[in-house]
Amino acid sequence: MKLTIENISKQYKDKIAVKGFSAELTEGVYALLGPNGAGKTTLMRMVADILKPTAGRILFNDKDISVMGDQYRDVLGYLPQEFGLYKSFTATRFLMYFASLKGLDKKEAKIRVQEVLQLVNLQGEEKRKLSTFSGGMKRRIGIAQALLNDPKVLIVDEPTAGLDPKERVRFRNLLSEIAADRIVVLSTHIVSDIEYIAKEVLLMKEGELIQHNTLESLLERINGRVWNVVVTKEELPTIQREYKIGNIQRNEKGIEIRIIHDTKPFPNALQVPASLEDVYLYFFHEEVRDNV
């Protein structure tokens, strides 16, 4: 099974949202990382067949998805970053409705609805109206609908936003379990979500794919560039301006900071193993600083 993204671009009137993006995806979890406005959501919409690319094409098993149409969407599961629900629907009615949209027959749908409700830990809430659901529960019902048709290609945009830590771990494990025989594309801001499950990481910046590698390769790339150092309160503002700073932690010795830099920044700096968060910081330092 193969999903090929072939040089796709999306241009709005005066803005290029995605520019010449190419990647070949096979079974496993692909993490799409990038700051706000990097083009992740636009890219995912194009892969989900709800937005046409301005240029390029997407192939599923070497067939153009725009030609495949219904056939492609039959194997697709999609959870957008933001989505609405029908307030008057109960959880079961909502899922039965999406089961019919996905072409499941009634008997099959009834069984599958119970299964996905269990997968997202919403069993017992079947009869509740969606208007009474909390933000986290709404996200979980969204995940449930994406899984209804047992998709071969699962596109999930910020799936863990609004979930409590317990549910986030649960969802991570679920993705990890199901990814063995399907292609999962996941975008997130929370790097810990993908640290243990991503087969490959795709880094996007200003609409372009700037890195496509395994997590190990990315970590390898910045290994030897991550430092821990204790500084004073007075030194901190200058250091923040000049270096890519990660975690900042106060302790009895002063302020312990994590710096990503090619060379040893201070004589007392200690080299530490890199994490995915450091990778993110290394590539998107400006965007992180702007957001702070």
């Binding site: 999609y78 609405g84 072409g103 048709n149 596109i155």
Partner: peptide
């Protein structure tokens, strides 16, 4: 915003 969910389904 239910259109995104609907349009990505088979039917």
């Amino acid at each position: 915003r239910t259109a995104g969910l609907i349009l990505a389904t088979k039917h």
